[in-house]
C-alpha cells in the first residue's frame, strides 16, 4: 500500500536512469540487502531467544517440582509466562524445542515479510536492539523495495501486457479496448491459478492441519500484504527440510507480489477503469491557486496525476513506443 505513495517519484527516477546495468545492480543490491538483514536479525535475536528459552525451561522444571500442592495463583502465573513466551514466538512444549525462530532462513523470511510490509507477527524482535534495527532497516528498506518492485513491474509490463496487446491489435485488427479487457481477464485467471490455487493445493498437502480453504486464505492474506499471521507455514514441530521450505516461501512471496502488481497495473491501464478512477480524483486546481502554490514552493512542476488526460488513448500508444525504444532488445514488430 505504501507503493502508491511513493510511486510517482520511483517511476521518474527509473525513467531517468533507464539502463539495464542499473537494473541488474539494483536486483543484486536488493538481494544483498535482504541477506544482510537476515544476518543482522539472526545475530541480534538468537542469543536473546536462547536466554528466554532457558528461562522458560527453568520455570517449567520448578513448576513440575512443586505441582503436588499447586495453587491457582501459581497456575495463573505459569500461564502468563507461557503466553508471553508464545507472543514472542517461543513455545514451551517439549517437542517444539527443535526449531529456532531466528535461525538464518527464518530471519530471511522475517526480513522479507518486513520489507513487503506483510508483517505476520509470528516472530517479532524481542530485544531493544532488534526493535531499533527493525525501524531503521525498514525506513531504508521499504522505499528500496518499492523502487525494486516498480522497476521489475515496469519491465515485465512491456512483455506481459503492452506487446501482446499491440501484436494482436496490429495482427488481427481487433479493437484495442476489447483486446485489453480479454487480455487482462486471461492474465488475472493465469495469476490466480499459478499463485493462489496451485500454491494453496501445495500448502494444504504440506501442512498438517490446513485444508484447501485455509491455504487459499493464507495465500491471499500474504499476497495482499495484510499478513495477519494466524496461519504461517513451516512452523510445525517436526517440519522436514525446514530451511528449504522457508526459502521457498520467501521466493514465492516476492514473486507473488510482483505478479500481483503486474495484474493490478494491467487492470489499471484499462480505459474503463481509468474513467472510473478519474471520477473520484480531484480535478486540477484552479490555475491561479496552483500557480501560487508552485511559485512559493519553488516547485516548478505540476502533479501529473491531476492532469485530465483527454486523448489518453493516443498518449498511451505514444508512451508504449517510447518505452520500447528505451528497452534493450527491441522487437521490430511494434515499430
Amino acid at each position: 500500500m505504501l507503493q502508491s505513495l511513493a510511486s510517482n517519484s520511483c517511476v521518474r527516477l527509473i525513467q531517468s536512469h533507464k539502463s539495464t546495468w542499473y537494473f541488474v545492480s539494483l536486483v543484486l543490491g536488493y538481494l544483498l540487502y535482504l541477506i544482510f538483514g537476515a544476518v543482522v536479525f539472526s545475530s541480534v535475536e538468537l542469543p536473546y531467544e536462547d536466554v528466554l528459552r532457558q528461562d522458560l525451561r527453568a520455570i517449567k522444571k520448578q513448576f513440575l517440582m512443586d505441582n503436588k500442592c499447586l495453587s491457582e495463583e501459581s497456575l495463573e502465573r505459569f500461564l502468563k509466562k507461557a503466553l508471553e513466551a508464545s507472543n514472542y514466538g517461543v513455545s514451551i512444549l517439549n517437542n517444539a524445542s527443535v526449531n529456532w525462530n531466528w535461525d538464518f532462513t527464518s530471519a530471511l523470511f522475517f526480513a522479507s515479510t518486513v520489507l513487503s510490509t506483510t508483517g505476520y507477527g509470528h516472530t517479532a524482535p524481542l530485544s531493544d536492539g532488534g526493535k531499533a534495527f527493525c525501524i531503521i532497516y525498514s525506513v531504508i528498506g521499504i522505499p528500496f523495495t518499492l523502487l525494486f518492485l516498480t522497476a521489475v513491474v515496469q519491465r515485465i509490463m512491456v512483455f506481459s501486457t503492452r506487446r501482446p496487446i499491440n501484436y494482436i491489435h496490429t495482427r488481427w485488427g481487433l479493437s484495442k479496448p476489447l483486446v485489453a479487457i480479454v487480455h487482462a481477464t486471461l492474465l488475472a485467471m493465469l495469476a490466480v491459478s499459478c499463485f493462489f490455487l496451485i500454491p494453496a493445493a501445495i500448502f494444504s498437502a504440506l501442512e498438517e492441519n490446513w485444508n484447501f480453504l485455509e491455504s487459499f486464505y493464507f495465500c491471499f492474506i500474504s499476497l495482499s500484504t495484510i499478513g495477519l499471521g494466524d496461519y504461517v507455514p513451516g512452523e510445525a514441530a517436526n517440519q522436514k527440510f525446514r530451511e528449504l521450505y522457508k526459502v521457498g516461501i520467501t521466493v514465492y512471496l516476492i514473486l507473488g507480489l510482483i505478479v500481483m502488481l503486474v495484474v493490478l497495473e494491467t487492470f489499471c491501464e484499462l480505459q474503463q477503469l481509468k474513467q472510473l478512477r478519474k471520477m473520484f480524483y480531484l480535478k486540477k486546481e484552479k490555475p491561479q491557486d496552483r500557480l501560487a502554490i508552485v511559485e512559493h514552493d519553488h516547485l516548478s512542476f505540476t502533479t501529473v496525476s491531476n492532469r485530465p488526460s483527454v486523448h489518453s488513448e493516443d498518449k498511451t500508444q505514444t508512451f508504449v513506443s517510447v518505452q520500447t525504444l528505451g528497452s534493450p532488445n527491441d522487437d521490430p514488430l511494434i515499430q
Binding site: Q3, S7, V11, L261, E265, S312, T318, F319
Partner: peptide, 29 residues
C-alpha cells in the same frame, strides 16, 4: 533533480506530455 541536471526538465516536460496517463500505473497496491 531539475536543479542538478539542467537538461532534465525540458526532457521531462516532453515525457510528461506523453505519459500523462501514466503516473498511477504502479500506484495500485
Amino acid at each position: 533533480v531539475v536543479l542538478t541536471h539542467p537538461g532534465f526538465k525540458k526532457q521531462k516536460e516532453e515525457e510528461e506530455d506523453v505519459s500523462s496517463s501514466k503516473p498511477e500505473d504502479i500506484s495500485k497496491i
